[in-house]
Design a protein around this nucleic acid. Sequence first.
DNA 1: TGACGTTTGAAATGTTTGTTTGGAACCCAG
DNA 2: CTGGGTTCCAAACAAACATTTCAAACGTCA
Lengths: 237, 237
Amino acid sequence: MPSLHRAPTKGSLETKERIFDAAEALFMDQGFSTTSLRAITAKAKVNLAAVNYHFGSKEALIREVFDRSLGPLNGARMAQLDRLEAAAGGNPVAIDKIVEALVSPALHVSHDPLKRGAAFLRLLGRALSEPAEYMRAFLPAHYRDVVVRFRRALSLALPNLSEAELTWRMHFTFGAMAYSMAGTDAVELFTTPDDAGVDDAEAIVQRLIPFLVAGLKSPTPKSRATRSVEPSARKVA
Amino acid sequence: MPSLHRAPTKGSLETKERIFDAAEALFMDQGFSTTSLRAITAKAKVNLAAVNYHFGSKEALIREVFDRSLGPLNGARMAQLDRLEAAAGGNPVAIDKIVEALVSPALHVSHDPLKRGAAFLRLLGRALSEPAEYMRAFLPAHYRDVVVRFRRALSLALPNLSEAELTWRMHFTFGAMAYSMAGTDAVELFTTPDDAGVDDAEAIVQRLIPFLVAGLKSPTPKSRATRSVEPSARKVA
DNA sequence: TGACGTTTGAAATGTTTGTTTGGAACCCAG
DNA sequence: CTGGGTTCCAAACAAACATTTCAAACGTCA
């Protein structure tokens, strides 16, 4: 038996890293099902078999691409929310601060070349509308804690909002956020082709936060209270 | 030469229709690249070759699925905006009415079984984040007029909003809208599993409109006015 | 240096993709 | 009944796909 878990010798980490970066870039602007291992290995300039050797399968590669960035990202989100709640000391946190804690860590997701941050954001946005089943399997696992935490904070900050209403508004919030990160391809075509650079993530966030805060704080539609008899939790599924 | 364009004899329209419905349903919750012709023909219970016979290719099938619903949908949107502008007589139209004209026709998109309407909405939402190139080719063609019209109306209704700011807010608006229509799969997992039925498109719209209106009307971030020198309408495109 | 574990390379595996084919079944006009 | 146009079907097609295989190359330790 060899010395277990020994530090790789030659270009092994280098190869795995190149695969990683190439995969992230291609997934970003092509999607997951569409991107072939051949395209990835060609871009990374490594052998085709290298992916299955280093990662085991294409699905495992996708999972690792996410784990590497989604963990720190959501960790930063919750840490920032922690600080806000600690500073507030039991009182509700300001909504704009909550939204900022949700949106802005997306910028400083890692201390890497900074390009990786923006790249991963579009990758994540794309994943949220990806049909693949393995996406539905482990992506919610990453997000559940974040959603629970932010839902609680928002529920405190917006006390006159029913639980159902809050669910919808968080739904819209995540939608606008995900789309803003992923949808540059589709939208820049039918808005105006020559606006402020879409790559400038900071600009997106600075405009997105007020938009979302206003939407979250908006008065409930018609104050219809409970609009009929409250459907009383249908099939729990 | 046969009698051109004769009414089909047996189950031809019936077959084409079944392919159409099956394709729409599968595209909706699987995406385009991911859905195979074999899956479509299996669901439609027709022969594999039927797709290429009736539509010519998979891409043509996708295009027809869109043309059939996107045309009437955007037509209804613009017609509704027409009525609003005629009633306003030169004055700006109320923002909530504009947003309603954009969002609500999605409900009454056709006089079909009504289920088709909701189905197509999710299909459209998914298309907006689809990587395929043929999507970028003909989808903007359908949307360009709508965007231009609504941008003009919103620009009048929100006079103290710079063009760049308006672009971003429309961006976010389309994002929340598209995601709300497509993202039921991803979101219902990490919000709460047992909320009001996501299939109830009317409920979505009634909650989405106030959210978007509030976002669109929100004060500009720092009132940085025209942040540099006003880019003065570059290439009109 | 020599042996062993790790990594890479080129080729082949079997599966799945969209598309094409040739003939049978069908309908209707002549 | 007969021919021609249309529709359908089972099968086959080539291309692209993820994955596996096996030998060669490499680095490290004895």
